[in-house]
Design a protein around this nucleic acid. Sequence first.
RNA 1: GGGUAGGUUGAGCAGGUGGUGAGCUCCGCUGACUGUAGAUCAGCCGUCAUACGACUGUGGGGGUUCGAUUCCCUCCCUGCCCA
Length: 348
Amino acid sequence: MPVGTNATVKALDPADIRATGASIILANTYHLYLRPGHDRIERLGGLHRFMAWDRPILTDSGGFQVVSLGDLRVVDEDGVSFRSHLDGSVHRFTPEHATAVQEALGSDIAVAFDQPVMPSSPREVVADATARTHRWAERSLAAHTRADQALFGIVQGGIDPDLRAESTRAIAALPFDGICLGGLAGDETPEQRDATLDVAVPLLSDDPRPRYLMGLGSPADLLEAVHRGIDLFDSVLPARVARNGQLWVPGGRLNLRNSRFLDDPEPIQADCPCLACGQFSRAYLAHLFRARELLAYRLATCHNLTFTLDFMARIRTALEAGTFPASLPELRLRAGRIRGSEAGVKSA
RNA sequence: GGGUAGGUUGAGCAGGUGGUGAGCUCCGCUGACUGUAGAUCAGCCGUCAUACGACUGUGGGGGUUCGAUUCCCUCCCUGCCCA
């Protein structure tokens, strides 16, 4: 899922998003509640109509902002009080309120209000937040009324094997439509993530519901997570790094702001069907980035999302053909070694 | 020709009225970014050195002085005004 926090995948219009191959996008409850307001979006016909996107939308519950906007919040058993990052005004989210806001937005998939924690937090902090997330999960379910909207629950537990296993069992025991694995897009290492998935996913092996790993999006992360049994992802990474000049290609990445591209007549990626590669050279993109021209952000975002979604399509093809494990080396080569903070291959 | 204001590291500036000029913003170079307070942020950006640090540098030349960006002489260049 490409991420469209403010009811827009930054720099793209709906036709651009479709052209990347995306079939579902993510929007954010917290941001849309603050601006323009979920009630306003509801009056204007709901989120799909508001942003002219007729395919599925998943709304994140806003729980993540509890962590990412940490300076501004106070958590208690009933919910979270926080200050708006826009104007400092005080607001309060509870599981019931987050559910109601998502129903007003009219997303296809809503997500239970949770309390993520950084993996580096002390164990008792993780245990406390995880237990509260379970109680909030039940409250989100109880508050949910729209039959035309799915509701996913979120597993927490940090990278502690026992807590993660306990949380997986607790959330899986509830009648959610899908299972999110949260709290793994923070400061943990790729090895810790893999180990955590190896703890959680086997507990869902007989569970037919989709498994959604929240917040990861580098090609290597996607591949390794699918390998461990994950179905669904979201991440700002491909779009954000694109806006900052980093273009993904098979085997690595290009930083289009580097001077070596100023005279490069080749497309970003020769066999890529995206809006950029079909008509423009690396030299042109490099020029646009230097000039800070708006087209740079659109073209780069189109490319990285196209690359990412094409990569997922290749994985699906291998899975459906029954050749997935055998295809791992080839897919790993294509993904490169970009996994978050881990230094990756710089160019193909 | 006369007058006047200037000349500082790629560009634009700050500073400095006899006692330590390497400071800022651009440009440029590189890196980072994972449930988006991000078209953002960080580092570097005179020479040598991994670094500590050393050295050079205030238009050119000369003079005075222990010491000159500062004072004196001269020349060059630029803007503006007058003729």
